[in-house]
Design a binder for these strands. Structure first.
Lengths: 140, 140
DNA sequence: CAGTATCCAGAGTGATACTG
DNA sequence: CAGTATCACTCTGGATACTG
């Protein structure tokens, strides 16, 4: 995929006026990059992978995603709904209940994200070892 | 590595009981979650995928990753080196030159990240459509 | 060239209180 | 239950200047 824009120039430092480069993911204004920023969000990843298994209600998500605030979860699910990645279903029970579920589009994204999580689970130990080695080299 | 998937009973919002129970990815204190946070970082993703193709020098990366500041790039590559994902090679030329390259461990991570980028490139259009539809539903 | 140090504006986030 | 609104605060991250 190719983005066809040139850079905005507004956010660049003074010394380098806009240069013409093949525009791709690494360009700031590319929509793909914007999407990547969103997708790489911490809560987004966790919420989406939770919903892979089953639809969940708001407070169920909140309990499961430890450390998320009401505000951030609310923000996250609204964003996901806007992006067409999850559906929001309101059931008019006595206290209203709201359920969130993956859309097919969201499902395809979860697969990519899961690869990332799997990597983290598989390689955490090795990374920790590298960190320790690095720190000892610096301090010792 | 897999953190235990036990459901946490006590969810104190303010505390950081890092050493009590082994939680899963969705728990705040799990090392896997910490790693995921790092990996999901914006610049990390871009730098790592750039290095997949070839080793690059500092300013080459800087030019390529549009919008990154010197400070953030410096921070990012140092972190990546500490995590054992990239190597930092100093060549004592006249002005010193520093080259960064992926380690084998870093290479395995890039594959997972690339899946995420591919998804973004493939589905950007559909997401944009969903966003527009959502916004029109709200305003119209 | 490849950084480090400093300053500081503002986005992101949590706590709290309130609503349907 | 499922949010929204408001405020206070942290902490990222950009701009700038300096160093080896």
């Amino acid at each position: 995929m190719k983005c066809s824009m040139s850079q905005e120039g507004t956010l660049l430092s003074s010394g380098h006026p806009a240069e013409t480069r093949p525009p791709d993911v690494y360009s700031a204004a590319c929509p793909t990059r914007q999407l990547l920023d969103r997708v790489a969000d911490k809560w987004t990843t966790l919420v989406l992978t939770l919903l892979r298994d089953e639809p969940m209600r708001f407070n169920a998500l909140r309990r499961r995603v430890e450390g998320v605030s009401q505000k951030m979860l609310s923000q996250t699910v609204r964003q996901l709904e806007r992006d067409g990645l999850v559906t929001r279903t309101v059931t008019p029970t006595v206290p209203v209940s709201v359920s969130y579920a993956l859309t097919p589009l969201g499902g395809t994204l979860v697969d990519a994200l899961q690869a990332m999580i799997d990597w983290a689970e598989d390689n955490m130990a090795e990374v920790s070892k590298a960190q320790t080695a690095y720190d000892e080299r610096r301090l010792g």
